[in-house]
Amino acid sequence: MTAIDPAKAPDAERTGTTAKGRRGRRLLGSSPAYMTAVLLVLVLVFAFAAPDSFPTPVTLRNVLTDMAVLLVMAVGATFVLVAAGFDISIGSVLVFSGVCAAKVMETQGGDGAGTVVLGVVTALLAGAAWGAVNGLVISKLKVPALITTLGSMGAALGAALLISNGTDVRTVPKAMISVATDRPLGVSWLVWVAAIVALIGGFVLSQTRFGRHTQLIGSNEESARRAGVDVDRHTFWLYTANGTLAGLAGLLSLTRFATTTISGHTSDGLEVITGVVLGGTSLFGGVGTVIGTVIGMAIPTVLNNGFIQLNVQPFWQEVAIGIVLVVAVYLDQLKRRRRNQP
């Protein structure tokens, strides 16, 4: 069905297609479908260019492990962006949570399960606290999300540096590090945690009332308000959940690198948002899927791994992603514009 005369469109719709056919076409025309194709092309190109090293289980495992930490945050960011919000602070919240957890575990000492549990709780609480502060400032004080989270990005990193005295904490219990090196069913625990987060996030966003309200708020906040949705409360919980996931990511980062990597996460927020937007989530809110986010996060990681194997400077990955991002958003806008003038 191409180039329909607008005056005849209803008739063409009535006679031309079934509801099922329309749904199928819409699925294929969606951004996640495009991006899956892009991902497949990338994999094929690298597989042909490096047939001995790229199409191997080791590469798959590396890609999955590399993605895991960022994916956990990307699931939260998907919710925030679908609600037409924004959170750039997650990288700093990750560092802050990691430092808090590491410090608490250091004070507690030992290698036991109790210490690890304490660290886990600390990281999650620290993340949740930053998220709650973001949520309160955005929903109650009505400070724009970009400014709020830009502020907490600086503040959280500063606080992390204060707590750690500016040096990385390296006293991570061995029990915790072994979590990262253990590989149940072939992949690290990090990957399993990220997968579970993505599954739960995908379910909540697409199947539950919480997810529907998230879309409603992002699509038309006033409409959500009039429909009786408590927008402020919902917004608060979105940012709190997002912060908690950043805390969880801090924990995963800690187990992976066995140190707090304070200076290593300054660009996490942007990388996560890039991946989420690549996966078809709209910066303008209302649209987005977690499966799209998984694909969007996989593209930069695959590029990175592929370039390294081909001995291409991995910096090219950043150049390529920058271009792909702009093109993806341009296409999204084009689609919207066409849709909004039927």
């Binding site: 539950t208 879309q215 038309n220 006033e222 409409s223 709209s282 209302g286 909004n340």
Partner: peptide, 29 residues
Amino acid sequence: ALAPELGPAENAFAGRELLRPGLAGRLGM
């Protein structure tokens, strides 16, 4: 006051979503 990204049915039930019966409904499904 419609949400442009959502469908007609989704808009019709905005803020008044029906949940599934039983456990699934209690999970907010």
